[in-house]
């Protein structure tokens, strides 16, 4: 139990905002590297669209996810009900 209280007091690497920023910038750098990698190999493709612009898959993933999340936000307006929605139906 004594271990637990020391644990609570312990400062974690992720607790600092600047470290989270470091992860964020590292991710951006990784993304850039993955796009630059496109220049250094011959891409085997089935469809022309795969090589339309550099880092096509990256663009697709990025826009796909942004669309996914924003569309879900809209869906939430339509579909979200209180947590007890089905319980209330039962109690009536």
């Amino acid at each position: 139990m004594g271990k637990k209280s020391t644990r609570k007091a312990k400062k974690y690497w992720l607790d600092s905002k600047s470290n989270i920023d470091k992860i964020w910038y590292a991710l951006i750098v990784l993304c850039l590297i993955s796009v630059c990698a496109d220049f250094f190999y011959h891409k085997h493709i089935e469809y022309k669209v795969e090589d339309l612009i550099v880092g096509m898959y990256g663009w697709y993933g990025f826009l796909g996810c942004v669309f996914l999340v924003l569309a879900s936000k809209v869906l939430r307006i339509l579909l979200m009900r209180p947590e007890t929605f089905y319980d209330e139906v039962k109690d009536e």
Binding site: W24, E50, M56, G58, V69
Partner: peptide
């Protein structure tokens, strides 16, 4: 293959980027 690995990494890294940005 290089194509598979690089394209998949692009797809995933940029998805993570989208998450981070949002």
């Amino acid at each position: 293959t290089t194509t598979h690995v690089v394209t998949q990494l692009q797809l995933l890294l940029f998805s993570a980027l989208a998450f981070g940005w949002l």
